[in-house]
Structures are given as structure tokens and as C-alpha cells.
Design a protein around this nucleic acid. Structure first.
Lengths: 218, 218
DNA sequence: CGCGGCGAGGACCGGATAGTCCAAATCAAG
DNA sequence: CTTGATTTGGACTATCCGGTCCTCGCCGCG
């Protein structure tokens, strides 16, 4: 295993616009199908059909199914992080956190809690069968948590959060509540558990505010 | 769907001790294998081999793979509830909750956070593909949460918890933290996130104690 | 000790699905 | 326009895996 594809642009392939578009179409279809059915329950033929492509195109753009799945992990991770960056980048107050919570709940209630978190379900399904996917997912979770903890740091620096608040731990706790909430909501087909879980985590963060708000979380 | 197998002993089969033992062996093997590889990634041949049985025995005791999986959901659910009953039935104090937390963390740290919760991973994997399994799992989670909320009710009745504490919501939050903790720990191959998540939930419950303990959670 | 039925062994089948291959179409560049 | 590389279509293959079936073995009962 001396030379991977690392630093081996010896034979870079020319890639046309059409090629890029096809690859994107495949990933988009895989993303959609695997979100509702799960990774293992989705076949390449399903993806081929949904993406209006052919078998050879799948294997032209991805070495095998495992590679496609790994690409999807990257793809979905980028999507989630981009979305979350929008909601968390400017986070400076507790009410901003509440708005963030409401947006997630709102989105998940559209399908009655079904399907859960696109990253969380992949993590459960893949962690025990693809080390590389697991590690990418773990990094994505870390990046996601960092978006939260960065916001909490800003709140602490501005004096909104007490000095003894630990942004990293708070972010991890919030992420766990979110993921656990997704999981229970998916099992129950009801967003309620997710709301309760997030409210617990927010209350916990609230207990570190310098000037406690009287208004309830929601 | 008028008559399920409920109250339909019209043609009760004689079942020998040997037959029962075989069925148990199959379930035990399925439980073990599907815990580490996941449900969909485990084949009937794997189970056959691990349980030292044959194909016909699998189909003698279970109609098809789906039925086997459903039986496993029941089996594993019963195991977890039995285990949890042991740890929660006598719960009457916050320190009991801490001991319970420590036991779970301890158990999960034995495999460095891998595999997650036997129920949680099944819930993620099956919720989108087997409605019956999903509903059984949802009920099992409810029963598990009830073990917790019953304990919290006892604490509230005895005056340890304030009257405005909501045992059901606290139990749901704790369960979500637990499941989310399992998930993140599995993705990270490290129990740390699970500890942080559980500590958050316990701190939250602690905030409802009538006489706050000075000692930290762990 | 023989009979009936449950339990067990394992070969076999069929379909689904990942993966291959080759020829045709399309495209970029000179 | 020519040429060579990329992209595409889709038939084909190999294999895995769920599920079937037939036979024999074993056990309990009369």
C-alpha cells in the first residue's frame, strides 16, 4: 500500500461538464433514496433508475458501491454542514439557539419524525462495516459540534454565558440530545421526543446563562 | 388482519425440549452477530453456522428472515428490559441514577463505544423498512422510559424531587441523551461523548432536586 | 418394539444484485 | 474535419443469499 491515489496526478482524466452533471445526478439520487430506505436497502439499480443513468455510468464515476457510499457520506456531510453553518455561524444569544432548535424540529415534523438525521442513521448503519466511512462521519460530527461550540464561545466571550460553562461539553451534550431525539422520534413516528430532548439540552445551557431568562424555552 | 397468532392454539404443535433449545440457540446467535454487524449485513448462513444448526431448522422455527428479525427484536427487548429492571426497579435517589449511569458507561467502554445500543441501532435500521418491528421497538423504548420515570416518580413522592419536576419528560430526555450518546460514541469509537451526554441529562435532573448535592456527578 | 410426528441435515433452486464489457455516441482540441 | 478521449447504453455474468424440499433421525407414547 505504498502509493494510494495520493499525489498521483500522473494521468489526470479530463472531465467534461456532462460528466460532472451525471456524477451529481447519481449522488443526488443516492442521497434521496438512501435517506428514506437506508444505505443497505438501496440497490444500485434503484439509484440507476432514479438518476436516469446507466450501469456503466455508475461504475465510470465510482469504483464500486462502497466508494459511492463514501462519496455520499462526504456529499451529505457537506450539505448538512453548509445548512448548519447558515443557522449557527451568527449565533450570539440563547434566543438564537432556540430559533435553531425550532428550525430543526420544524423540518423533522414535516415527515412526522421519520427517517431521522441523515448523518446519524448513516453513522449507525456504517460504523460497524466501513471504517473509512465511520471516521469521516465522526469528523463531520466534530465539525458540526464545533459550529455549536464556536457560537457558545462567542456567547461566553460576550458575557452571556458564565465563565465556568464548557462550550465543548455543552455542544457534545446538545448534539447527543439532537441525535437521540432524532432516533426516538424516528422510532415513534412522532417529533415529540426530539422536542423534549432538545429542550432538556437547551435548559441545561440556559442554566449557564449569566442573566437567566424568565420566558420558557418554547 | 382479524386473527394474528393471538389466541389461535387451534393446532398446537408439540414442542420438545430439544426444539426449544434449538430455537434459543438460533436467537442467541442472531443476537450476537446482528449486534456487531447490523441486521441487514448478517446472513442466514452466518446465523446457521454460528448457531450450529441447519437451514431447515431456521425455517422450522421462523417463517422467514423478517420473522426471525422480529423475534430478535422481542428477544433483545426482553433482555434489555430485564437488565434495566435490575438497575432501575429500586431507584429512589439521585445517587442510584449515578450508579445506573456508571454501569452503562462501564459496559459500553468494554468495546470502546463500538456497536452502540442493541435497541437503538435496530430502531435506526428497521424503522424505515419494517413497520411492525418499528412499533415493537417504540413500545420497548416506552417501557424502558417508564422504568426511569417510575423511579423519578418515587423520588418526587418521597420529596427528593421537586413537585414541578416532570418525570416523563425527564425520562425521555435521559433516554435521548443515552441513545445519542451511544450513537456518537459508536461513531467516534470512544465512550467520552456518551459520558458527557449522560452527565448533561443527570445535571438537568439534578436541577430538580429539593436539596442540591454539592458533589459533582462523577 | 413399533409407530407417528417433531426435529435435523443439507442439497438444491431462483431471483436479486453487484459488477463486467464492448460498442456506439458525444465531445474537446488541433 | 479528424482524431482520440470521455461518456453512455445496456446486455451479460457471477455470486450471494433467501427460501424450498426431500430424506433421515430421534424421541415419546402406547
Amino acid at each position: 500500500m505504498a502509493d494510494e491515489q495520493v499525489a498521483a496526478p500522473t494521468k489526470q482524466r479530463r472531465i467534461s461538464q456532462r460528466g460532472i452533471a451525471t456524477r451529481e445526478r447519481i449522488l443526488e439520487a443516492a442521497n434521496r433514496l438512501m435517506f428514506v430506505r437506508g444505505v443497505n436497502a438501496t440497490t444500485l439499480d434503484d439509484i440507476r433508475e432514479a438518476s436516469q443513468t446507466s450501469k456503466s455510468q455508475l461504475y465510470h464515476h465510482f469504483a464500486d458501491k462502497q466508494e459511492l457510499v463514501r462519496a455520499l457520506v462526504k456529499y451529505r456531510g457537506a450539505l448538512v454542514l453548509q445548512r448548519e453553518r447558515g443557522g449557527l455561524e451568527r449565533l450570539r444569544s440563547f434566543s438564537g439557539l432556540v430559533r435553531w432548535r425550532n428550525a430543526l424540529v420544524q423540518a423533522n415534523s414535516l415527515n412526522n419524525g421519520k427517517y431521522g438525521c441523515g448523518l446519524g442513521s448513516m453513522a449507525v448503519e456504517l460504523s460497524d462495516q466501513d471504517e473509512q466511512a465511520r471516521s469521516m462521519l465522526s469528523e463531520t460530527f466534530a465539525a458540526w459540534e464545533k459550529l455549536i461550540s464556536d457560537g457558545l464561545h462567542r456567547m461566553r466571550d460576550s458575557g452571556a454565558l458564565r465563565q465556568d460553562a464548557d462550550p465543548e461539553k455543552l455542544a457534545t451534550g446538545l448534539m447527543a440530545a439532537l441525535q437521540g431525539g432524532y432516533l426516538l422520534a424516528n422510532a415513534a413516528h412522532d417529533v415529540a421526543p426530539m422536542e423534549v430532548a432538545l429542550d432538556m439540552a437547551l435548559d441545561h445551557i440556559k442554566s449557564f446563562l449569566t442573566e437567566p431568562t424568565g420566558e420558557p424555552t418554547r
